[in-house]
């Protein structure tokens, strides 16, 4: 499993000494103890098991990366777990696909609200529309990635 994670960009998990610097800094753990980066890495390196915790709960704030004394990069492990779970058929949160769909539609990840549209007009801000050729290129990149 470790080699599969590394293929997906995970850092050097075997250097982990289970000190818990990641978990004690983790903001998600502070509101819900179930999410525990130390245990996520522990279950992989000690038990060779896919952790049962949901990698999509991570806020990606990277404080675990900054504070890890062993330079393990726990975030990279969590991101690799997202990819592996996706490949194993575990659906990511629907929000992820909504963002991707929106990029395919307009080139931007968020839709323009009516309120913002009116405000843009009253402030004299430029039109948002992306040219057709560019949008085609963006769509192509995303559809070739399977989206």
């Amino acid at each position: 499993m470790i080699s599969r994670l590394k293929e997906k960009g995970a850092g050097d998990l075997l250097k982990c000494i289970q000190c818990g610097s990641c978990t004690s800094s983790c903001i998600v753990n502070a509101v819900n103890e179930y999410f525990n980066p130390r245990r996520i890495i522990g279950s992989i390196v000690k038990f060779n098991r896919l952790p049962d915790q949901d990698p999509w709960l991570c806020s990606s704030c990277s404080i675990c990366v900054e504070r890890c004394p062993q330079r393990v990069n726990p975030l990279s492990v969590i991101m690799a777990l997202r990819m592996i779970k996706y490949e194993n058929g575990d659906a990511p949160p629907s929000r992820v696909f909504e963002l991707i769909e929106q990029i395919k539609k307009t080139g931007l990840a968020f839709p323009l609200s009516n309120e913002a549209y009116e405000k843009r007009r009253s402030l004299g801000l430029p039109e948002l529309e992306m040219d057709e050729e560019s949008l085609k290129e963006v769509k192509k990149i995303l559809s070739e990635a399977g989206f």
Binding site: W56, S60, M79, R82, M83, Y86, P92, R95, V96, L99, I100, I103, G107, L108, A109, M130, D131, E133, S134, E137, V138, A145, F147
Partner: peptide
């Protein structure tokens, strides 16, 4: 012609 820089949602997949 610049698009969204696609931070973590997309990057994760």
């Amino acid at each position: 012609g610049a698009s969204c820089c696609a931070p973590l949602g997309l990057f994760s997949l």
